[in-house]
Amino acid sequence: MNIIVLLKQTFDTEAKIQLDSNNNVITDNIQYIINPYDEFALEEAIRIKEKLGDVIITVVSMGPRKVEEALRQALAMGADKSILLNDEVLFGGDEHTAAVALSQTIKQIPYDLIIGGQVAIDDGSGQVAIRVAEILDIPQVNLVTKLDVENNKLAAHRQVEVGTEVIEVFLPAMITAQKGLNEPRYPALKGIMQAKKKELKILGLADLGLTENQVGSNGANLKVISTFLPAPRNAGRILSGEISENVQELVRLLREEAKII
């Protein structure tokens, strides 16, 4: 079985976002991580490999050369191969162009199952994996919290507002991982050593057989007009009386000042 994992490198969740004078995000002193939902995706792929044995896991990512760190980490956790789409013309697009580039890469490798995170914690869009599934003409199960693979069939638990749907789907299929699917492992020292020898292929536009018009900002439908920080929230009032006075005062404030109760 061939499993592809879609992976994005993101800022750490504790990162503080600041803008420079041109309204670009300042990346100095930022710690980078594998997008947490993609880490669940990768962990699930490794667990399937441990269970079934004959599995090759290829991790596919797009971004600057810095993403090699995330791919090495994925290889150290247990992925077999990795591909990084690194080409300036591929960047700065939208979810459609990202999906075009990723699916064009995936078409060059055999796959039965593709797993990605349900959303990336940076742009919060949650579209790319599903668009890849559409381009490849395979079904998807989104927001998966439990996955069982049996022969060429998947049983997936999908988290929805009213409960958990149990969904059956035949391979090839796309799965997007939701928190709760598993608890990702830390790479072991042996894995870290082995990762150095594993394949990390870097591809550009020419390798994908796409033209500049199809990718990056040229191919994007959605354009960014502006980027801005949230209005700062100021500290309000700390109630300083006795406990029962504070509670009464809080209720009064919510009712009379905030007018929300």
Binding site: D94, E95, Q140, L143, L222
Partner: peptide, 23 residues
Amino acid sequence: HSALVKDLAPRVAERLKTGVATD
């Protein structure tokens, strides 16, 4: 922006070759 639409809207958008601003 619900569980249903998170699943549906990107599919429809890609099929129509259009964008969707989510959430």
